[in-house]
Design a protein around this nucleic acid. Structure first.
Lengths: 147, 147
DNA sequence: TCATTATTATTAGCTTAGCTAACGAAATGA
DNA sequence: TCATTTCGTTAGCTAAGCTAATAATAATGA
């Protein structure tokens, strides 16, 4: 591994920290934090999904997802259904309210970044767009279910 | 603002979440989390710096930094010194132990990303390197002290 | 001068989100 | 059948963000 690879990694690391700090400032309005948004997104687009699958998709431990789903359920954004074949498993699905909120909340949350993107000079804007596409590929592990 | 800008922002947002989840898995070894690493980095390279300045640089509220600095001080990584001109202000500086740990800890934390970068096919590796440079520019607000 | 106001930092207390360990319920298999 | 494995939850810890309130100091202005 070269020093350049380390520098690249360091930049990615630092950029990720700063980007998330910026979007967090609008959380109070949307009511959906980064983690909830991300999980809800997987639930909405990934269809009915079990707790374990969700934990793996989100790369966190089951208790973390378990609590998160409980909170989303309290707010009426998702619902659970016991698997009739294997009664240990519960399948999580988004409610229509959850679907609606995901789209609106996500838009709010990325609004701040989107404004900055829109305000860039054309060349830089194009570079950032390419960077985003590249990063999307890179940020998911090779064996990730959504990749 | 175009739909594309929103898509770009959405990708950046999602990628940032996933990247940070990955690096977090090595925190237990290094003993330095993302926030500490980032703040310590500003202290090490940004010279003696006040709590307010540090909060602004890190884009968080003063109480957040205040506690963080207290913890770093407990661990002997930084020291404080009252400003003799304005005794409300304390200047934070890294100890030599702090300097050493920053370099080692940061390396550990980015190691996981660096390995993935190193393992990419040459073209993709080049794209990721470019993306990192672009993202570094983009992730800092226009009026950021380090920009 | 000295009373008021502004600034700097801290403390207290809340929330979210991650973790491990321990456990109950259900399925599997020897 | 009974031991083991799997799935999910609960309990309890830590880290990191926030707001509100407060203490100490500086700056201002009547």
């Amino acid at each position: 591994m070269s020093a350049t690879d380390r520098q690249v990694a360091d930049r990615l690391h630092s950029a990720a920290i700063h980007l998330l700090r910026q979007v967090r400032t609008v959380d109070s309005k949307s009511g959906l934090t980064a983690s909830r948004l991300s999980a809800l997104s997987v639930i909405v687009f990934g269809g009915p999904i079990s707790i374990s699958e969700l934990a793996e998709a989100e790369q966190v431990r089951p208790p973390t997802i378990s609590r998160l789903v409980k909170e989303l359920e309290w707010e009426g954004l998702v619902s659970r259904q016991r698997d009739t074949r294997d009664r240990r498993i519960t399948r999580i699905r988004a409610t229509s309210k959850g679907r609606r909120l995901l789209l609106k909340g996500r838009e709010r949350r990325v609004e701040k970044l989107a404004e900055r993107v829109a305000g860039l000079p054309p060349e830089e804007r194009e570079r950032v767009a390419e960077a985003a596409a590249t990063l999307e590929r890179f940020s998911l592990p090779a064996d990730h279910p959504l990749s």
